[in-house]
Write a protein that binds this DNA or RNA. Structure first.
Lengths: 205, 205
DNA sequence: TGAGTGACCATAATACCAATTGGTCACTCA
DNA sequence: TGAGTGACCAATTGGTATTATGGTCACTCA
């Protein structure tokens, strides 16, 4: 979970190096305390006791560091959503829990870790790889539930799977996308229930 | 359509006055050409040949003028959406057209009248009355279609009407809300079709 | 009397320059 | 040789002095 998942091309030098972890650690600390913008690369360098230039031996850019931290955040949410899904055994309930968990966990990050949430907002708005990958993984989760539900006979099988995945993803998206979520706060109470009910009705065989 | 629909409490002085119309006209012109921010109240005053102070005999604030222009924009969209709906005779097709029209018309305003679109964006973000009223009217349109569909037997009748209205509204909202729409441009091609299909499946009796 | 205004104020926007910042590179020295 | 750096540059940012703007009000004069 705290595993440094890799947004590939943005990292440099030795893939597995103690200093890289130190940087990520320091960045997580600084970004979440002072915010991404207010933290300078020199701050991070000072924190780990090296020069700024050395940081660039490990990351292409400051944003690359931000991506890493953001990816960790999102992958933490993803893990917890998966856990929520696994608590249910039937696909319809899994879908309900997925909706509920996505909204709750995003909201939790928003209220408890505002500074990190702001990184996620930038990431989503500027389409960083970390976000694109996360979105894709959410669609895959969704597809998993749908496939299971089709197999178990809980869900209809006529509509092309890809289209169903996409449509449901679009329904969920306003609560996944950090920027949009901020403009949907009025609805976070009831939306997960109402929307998952609507979606489940649409999936009935 | 060009009718000065009234966001009530924000206007002042004589309700029906030639000068008020002049102001609205000049504001529409200036706002759509130079943008809301770049247009000063003095500009509008100059355009109609009165002093700035006189403008304030008719409107509470610059924003009030913006609200009026925004309300006109939105009510124009609303009218055209209604027209699109009326072209269909069966509720399911009405709903399809509503989704399609909402997205198309919002998108059209976005690409053809960017400056006015920016006002709509502020209005939605800052919850101006003009926007709240528009959203409510959209929900009412939706409810109309649903009621008709329930009566005609096209739609299921078990789910509470209010909940259905709200859920479908939430599905449509990312494409209604100007700010959110800007972050959904990737989906505007397929979303109306896919989402209205999903919604219709959820409505099947 | 009331349509219309000039002068005025607090705040917000702008323009400007100095200080920072992200990022690189030739270089050191262990 | 390669882990690590100081010095450097273009581009942002921060701070600030100044101007422009939204908004009001006492006032005019037809």
């Amino acid at each position: 979970m705290m595993k440094t998942s890799s947004p590939a091309a943005l990292v440099r030098g030795p893939a597995d190096h103690e200093v890289r972890d130190q940087i990520v650690l320091a960045a997580t600390e600084h970004f979440s305390r002072y915010g991404y913008e207010k933290t300078t690369v020199s701050d991070l360098a000072k924190a780990i006791g090296f020069s700024k230039a050395y940081i660039y031996k490990f990351f292409e850019s400051k944003q690359a560091i931000g991506e890493m931290i953001c990816a960790n955040c999102l992958s933490k949410i993803e893990t917890e959503v998966k856990a929520a899904i696994d608590q249910a055994d039937r696909p319809p309930e899994k879908l309900r829990r997925m909706f509920k968990a996505v909204v709750e966990l995003s909201l939790q990050l928003f209220s408890q870790d505002r500074k990190l949430y702001e990184i996620a907002t930038s990431a989503a708005t500027e389409r960083w790889l970390s976000t694109l990958a996360y979105e894709e993984r959410v669609r895959i989760m969704l597809r998993g539930i749908l496939e299971e539900g089709r197999q178990s006979g809980d869900f209809e099988r006529k509509t092309p799977l890809d289209e169903t995945v996409m449509a449901i993803y679009l329904v969920l998206r306003p609560f996944l996308h950090p920027l949009i979520l901020q403009h949907s706060l009025d609805y976070t109470e009831d939306a997960p229930g109402q929307l998952s009910s609507l979606v489940l009705r649409s999936l009935s065989p």
